[in-house]
Design a protein around this nucleic acid. Structure first.
Lengths: 131, 131
DNA sequence: TGTCAATATGGACGCTGGTCGATGTCGATG
DNA sequence: CATCGACATCGACCAGCGTCCATATTGACA
C-alpha cells in the first residue's frame, strides 16, 4: 500500500511494486478471488441502503451458513467489509473507497506515455536498466 | 463478464453479479492474488516498451525459473499477459485494457445515489425485495 | 549437425483454503 | 430464568496451489 500517485498512470504500471506492496495487495485480490465472496460483496453493495444482514445473504447460495460466515470474515479482514450488530442481526456494508482504492491501482490511463524500445537481437541478460 | 455499464456506478455495485459472472471474475482476481504474480505484472507493465522477456524477470525473485514460468502461464491464461517469441527470448506484455476492465468493475463512483432504508426492528427473514 | 542458452513442461510434495456438521455465543422475548 | 433465533467458531476433510528438481523443447550459432 502507500502508493503515491504522481505521474502519468497507476503505480503498478509506472514502476515495479515492492515485495511489501505486492504482499499487501495480493491479500486484497486474494479476497476477491472467490466467486462466493464476489457475489457477497456485490449483493451487499447493491442492496437497499448499501447494507445487508446475513439473513439476506445465506439464501442466495448453495453453501452452508457457516461457510457464508467464513467468507464474510475473510472479506472483513481484508478491509472490504465492515460489520455492525443491531438487535439480533449483523449488518454488513462495503466501506467507502475500499473497492475504489484497488480500482485506482489497476487503472492504466490508456493515453499513458511509454518509453519505446526496439526488439533486441543481442542477449539482454538480466538488464535492470532499460535499453 | 459481459457487464453493461449503463447506470450510476459499476455493475458490481449497481446489481448483484450472477454466479457465472462471479465465476469468471473470480478467476481474474485469483490470478492477481499472489505477490509474485503482482510483481511480475508490474515489472512487465513498467518495463521499457511495456514488455519484458523472462530473463529480465527471473533475477528479481527468490523463486526458481520454472516457478516464474508457471506464474507467467497463470497470468497469460487469465488474459492478463500476452507472450511473443522473438529469437531465443519470449517477451511478455500486458494487453491494453486488461487491467482497466477489472478497474472499471471495482470503481464505485463516490457520488452514486443509493436508496436509503431505515434499520429494521422486525425480522427481515430472507427478503429478496428491498424494504 | 552438435551444442548451448532460454524457456516450458512434468511429477512430486507440503501447505493453504473452501467446505461441512456440530456447537458456542449473544440478544430478544416470554 | 428459559428458550429461541441469528450468527460465529471449531475441528476435520480434501482439492487446489505454489514450489522445487529434473527434463523436454526451441532457436541460434559454430
Amino acid at each position: 500500500m502507500e502508493l503515491t500517485p504522481l505521474g502519468c498512470c497507476s503505480p503498478m504500471v509506472r514502476e515495479p511494486l515492492t515485495p511489501d506492496q505486492a504482499e499487501g495487495l495480493a491479500g486484497s485480490f486474494k479476497a476477491l478471488g472467490d466467486p462466493v465472496r464476489l457475489r457477497l460483496l456485490s449483493l451487499i453493495a447493491s442492496h437497499a441502503g448499501g447494507e445487508a444482514c446475513v439473513c439476506d445473504l445465506t439464501g442466495e447460495f448453495d453453501v452452508s451458513q457457516p461457510t457464508i460466515s467464513h467468507h464474510l470474515k475473510v472479506l472483513r479482514e481484508a478491509g472490504l467489509l465492515t460489520s455492525e450488530r443491531r438487535a439480533s442481526w449483523v449488518y454488513y456494508r462495503v466501506p467507502a473507497g475500499a473497492l475504489a482504492a484497488l480500482a485506482l491501482l489497476l487503472d492504466e490511463t490508456p493515453g499513458a506515455v511509454r518509453r519505446t524500445s526496439l526488439s533486441r537481437t543481442t542477449n539482454p541478460r538480466r538488464s535492470r536498466s532499460p535499453i
